[in-house]
Design a protein around this nucleic acid. Structure first.
Length: 417
RNA sequence: GCGAUCGUAGCUCAGUUGGUUAGAGCGCCGGUUUGUGGUACCGGAGGUCGGGGGUUCAAGACCCCUCGAUCGCCCCA
C-alpha cells in the first residue's frame, strides 16, 4: 500500500454546507448579473506570462513573487491566472470584441496566487467578476457599484460591510500626487518602517494604508489626491458620487484607499468588513483606463470589480443541506424492485428522494427518521405479501400517493410526521 | 518571505512531572430490546499518536529537521 498524496498547500476541498454556501453565492451573482444585463464570458485559466506581467506591472507583488508560472513543452512561459481582468482584456483585443462596445461582461472561476494561506485566503481561490469595457462615462462606475451593492444585499451580507470610495485621478493627476508623496515621505525616510522605506521605491501610495504606527505619524499630513486632481477628474468623481447617492448606495470617502495594481485610474473602491480578520476586503475594483494600451491595444476605458467567493460564502448564513422530501426504506430485500420503481415515480413528480436499503433491515427505518426526511415510504412483506406504509403529515402523504399512482396498492398504515 | 500557536481513531477531543497491551463521545458495522417506530443495552471494526532523526533503561509527551493547519505581518479578493 502506498501513501496517499496530500492536497496542495493552500487548496481546499469544499463539501456539504460549505459547498452549498459557495454555490449560493455563485447562483445569486448569476441572477443579479442578468438583472443588470451583463453577458457571460469564459476565459482560459492560463495565459502567456506576459499577459499578466505587462498589465499588472512588473514591480507589483503579484507579478514579482505570487504567480504560478511554468514552461510548457515548447519552452513558452505560461501563468495560471492570478486575476480576471488581464485575461479579459487580452480576449477583448484578440477576439475582436471591440465590435460589442460598450461591453458588459461577467465571469467567475478559480484564480491562483502563490501566497501564505490564512483565513479567507488560498492559493487557489475563486472570484466572481464584473467588467464594463469601453465606457468612459461615470455612469458605468455608478451602475457597477450599484450592482455590487445590490448583490451584497441579496446575499444578506451587507450588514457590517461598508463601501469605501476614492479617486486616483487621471494619469497626470496620479503621477503628480505620486511625486508629492515621495517628496513628503522621503523627507522622513529613516523614521519610516522598513516596509515603507521599501514602498517608497516600489509603490509610495501604499504607505498611506500602512498599519505601522511609525508610518501613521506622517500619513495624517501627507498630500491629498484632491489637491492634484484636474478639473475633469474632479467632475468625474463628483458624478460618480452623486450617481451613487441617487441610486441609494451608501459610501464613505477613504482618501487612503489605493489599489495595488498599476493600471487603475479614477475610481477605486472596496467593500470592507471587520468580520473576516485580516482579510477585510470582500469586493474590490476600480477604473482601469490605461490597461488596454499596456497590452498593445487602442486606448479603451473600462471599469470592473471582483469579489472572493470564499469570503462571501463565509459571511453568508450557513444553511444546512436540505433533507430529503422522501426516503424509501426497503425493510425486506425482496421489495428492492418496487423500491426502484417507486423512486423513479417520486422523483418524476419533483420530489427529492433517497434509498435506504443497506445495513441491518431492522435499523433502516430508524436511520431514515434520524435523517430528518419529510416523508418516509417503507416497503416490507407481511405474510409473504407486499406491504407499504407512509410516515408523513397528511399533505405529504397525499403528495406521495399522487406521485405513486397505482404502483403500490396494498398498504397497512400511515403515521404523522 | 517573516512571526506565533497547533497536528492522538472517519469526526470532536482526553491522555497527569516521559513509565506496562493508547482512551471517551459521536459516527460506522452486527446483535438484543422496543414493535409502527427518532429508545435503551451488548458486542465489533478502525490508530506506524502528521513524517524523519535524536536524547533516554523507557517518548504520544523532551530536542532538531520536515510537511501540513490555524492566526497575524507583507500583499491582496
Amino acid at each position: 500500500m502506498s501513501k496517499t498524496p496530500q492536497a496542495i498547500r493552500g487548496t481546499q476541498d469544499i463539501f456539504g454546507a460549505e459547498a452549498e454556501a459557495f454555490a449560493h453565492v455563485v447562483a445569486t451573482f448569476e441572477r443579479i448579473r442578468k438583472l443588470y444585463r451583463f453577458r457571460r464570458a469564459e476565459m482560459p485559466v492560463f495565459e502567456k506570462t506576459e499577459v499578466f506581467s505587462r498589465s499588472l506591472g512588473e514591480t507589483t507583488d503579484v507579478v514579482s513573487k505570487e504567480m504560478y508560472s511554468f514552461e510548457d513543452r515548447g519552452g513558452e512561459s505560461l501563468t495560471l491566472r492570478p486575476e480576471f481582468t488581464a485575461g479579459i482584456a487580452r480576449a477583448f483585443l484578440t477576439d475582436g470584441w471591440q465590435q460589442h462596445v460598450p461591453l458588459k461582461l461577467a465571469t467567475h472561476g478559480p484564480l491562483f496566487r502563490y501566497e501564505r494561506p490564512q483565513k479567507g485566503r488560498y492559493r487557489q481561490f475563486h472570484q466572481i467578476d464584473a467588467e464594463w469595457i469601453g465606457s468612459a462615462e461615470p455612469q458605468a462606475d455608478v451602475e457597477l457599484l450599484t450592482m455590487a451593492d445590490h448583490l451584497l444585499k441579496e446575499l444578506g451580507v451587507a450588514d457590517g460591510v461598508t463601501l469605501q470610495l476614492n479617486t486616483l485621478g487621471d494619469g497626470t493627476s496620479r503621477e503628480a500626487w505620486r511625486v508629492a508623496l515621495i517628496e513628503h515621505f522621503g523627507a522622513h525616510r529613516l523614521e519610516l518602517s522598513e516596509d515603507s522605506q521599501e514602498r517608497l521605491e516600489r509603490n509610495p501610495l501604499r504607505i498611506l494604508d500602512s498599519k505601522d504606527p511609525r508610518d501613521q505619524a506622517f500619513v495624517g499630513d501627507a498630500p491629498k489626491i484632491d489637491a492634484f486632481l484636474s478639473a475633469e477628474a474632479q467632475d468625474f468623481f463628483a458624478e460618480v458620487t452623486s450617481g451613487l447617492d441617487a441610486a441609494g448606495v451608501s459610501w464613505t470617502r477613504n482618501q487612503a484607499l489605493v489599489r495595488g495594481l498599476d493600471y487603475y485610474r479614477h475610481t477605486a473602491f472596496e467593500f470592507v468588513t471587520d468580520r473576516l480578520g485580516a482579510q477585510g476586503t470582500v469586493l474590490g475594483g476600480g477604473r482601469y483606463d490605461g490597461l488596454m494600451e499596456s497590452l498593445g491595444g487602442a486606448p479603451t476605458p473600462a471599469v470592473g470589480w471582483a469579489a472572493g467567493i470564499e469570503r462571501l460564502a463565509m459571511l453568508v448564513e450557513m444553511k444546512a443541506e436540505d433533507s430529503a422530501d422522501c426516503i424509501v426504506v426497503v425493510e425486506d430485500d425482496a421489495m428492492m424492485a418496487p423500491a426502484f420503481a417507486a423512486l423513479r415515480k417520486i422523483r418524476g413528480a419533483g420530489l427529492s428522494a433517497d434509498l435506504m436499503a443497506s445495513g441491518s433491515p431492522r435499523k433502516r427505518f430508524d436511520k431514515a427518521v434520524k435523517s430528518g426526511a419529510h416523508s418516509i415510504l417503507a416497503l416490507s412483506s407481511r405474510d409473504g405479501a407486499p406491504d407499504y406504509r407512509i410516515k408523513a403529515d397528511p399533505a405529504g402523504t397525499a403528495r406521495l400517493e399522487t406521485a405513486l399512482g397505482d404502483l403500490l396498492a396494498t398498504r397497512s398504515g400511515t403515521g404523522d410526521a
